[in-house]
Design a protein around this nucleic acid. Structure first.
Lengths: 185, 185
DNA sequence: CGTGACATGTAACGCGTTACATGATTAA
DNA sequence: TTAATCATGTAACGCGTTACATGTCACG
């Protein structure tokens, strides 16, 4: 999915500025789909406006540059919905953590421990994010709840698995670190 | 993770040709880390050779171009292990499927059904891949088993969740498709 | 007889990231 | 006072993809 579609997706849930879109795409609910940086969002927004997919309204602020609040138009909404109807790319999961796990026997136990802790912290953070959006805002939206529950279930499962089987992974590294266990008479 | 590291990672598990590396990175065990195409793999391999991280041995074949089998060197192995020791990027999950789920109420039920079936098929395929590697080859490697079991557990959970809650998602789309249910007296 | 797997490689192109440019306000 | 948050935007650069170029063999 391109940054263009990401902008349309986020704006279909409500008006936003470029700055806010970036936040949602890196930290918020939309981090599941794509994370984009300013350098791609601002040009994409400008292009979408030129094409009539969004409109802008400028809100001047003292000191800061004016907030440019974007709204999706009917044309934009139509394009977005249509794009969802045609076949999507497959889901992907990229895990530097699993690469470390795969090579556990070749790595110092400390590295494994840190990687495990880091991964757990990441999952907990995502969990926190998911539950925090439960209370606030416009989360009464039906698709939102389903998606949130799905994410919650997967994250909880992952966390439990890591908690239960993490030690086994550390043990792999520890066993390999002592290269001559048979020599221990 | 760059294509460079991917090549090193795969070669650290055994010799391979560029063609095989590409297969492993798109279909095989290493699809968790990065998927690369020929256009990036061949140049990366050439560079790695120039830097002494890998060596090549050419195996001429009748008709086909000679297989160029790459082996990792000590220097390459060291670089790879060192790269794993320093902080890695966070794991990412990108899901076009969840974007469809999020917008279930705005989409035709048929689209939701297809997306669900597609996602389930994908998970089943990954499951099949994971179990097939269980039997064959050099999977007695300890990190491999842990990683495989982790993948298996997550995929099984995901599949079960989709099977159990998929209907609820379809219902969201169906309910929204009939826009005036209150009018049904 | 055509499609797909095997097998390597280059060149053009696109997309997105990083770094830069600017600047006020607020919390530690 | 120093870092972080808010706020927009551009330009250079890197990395990877897509398409091209070439050719054999096996299977249906």
């Amino acid at each position: 999915m391109s940054v263009r579609s990401l902008c349309l997706a986020i704006l279909s849930f409500g008006d936003a500025t470029g700055y806010e879109i970036r936040k949602e795409s890196t930290e918020g609910r939309f981090s599941y789909f794509e994370d984009a940086s300013f350098g791609s969002i601002y040009p994409a927004l400008a292009r979408l406006e030129a094409e009539g997919m969004v409109t802008v309204r400028e809100e001047p602020q003292a000191g800061k540059p004016a907030r440019k609040v974007y709204s999706i138009t009917e044309a934009g909404r139509t394009e977005f919905i249509n794009s969802l109807c045609e076949p999507q790319a497959a889901d992907t999961f990229k895990s530097p953590f699993l690469l470390i796990a795969l090579n556990a026997a070749q790595l110092p136990p400390g590295v494994i421990r840190r990687a495990l802790e880091r991964r757990k912290a990441q999952v907990q953070e995502e969990l926190r994010l998911l539950t925090s959006c439960e209370e606030g805002q416009e989360c009464s939206h039906p698709g939102s709840s389903w998606t949130r529950d799905y994410g919650l279930a997967c994250m909880n499962f992952t966390l439990a698995y890591l908690e239960e089987h993490g030690d086994a992974l550390i043990k792999i590294a520890e066993d390999a670190a002592r290269p001559l266990p048979a020599a221990a008479e």
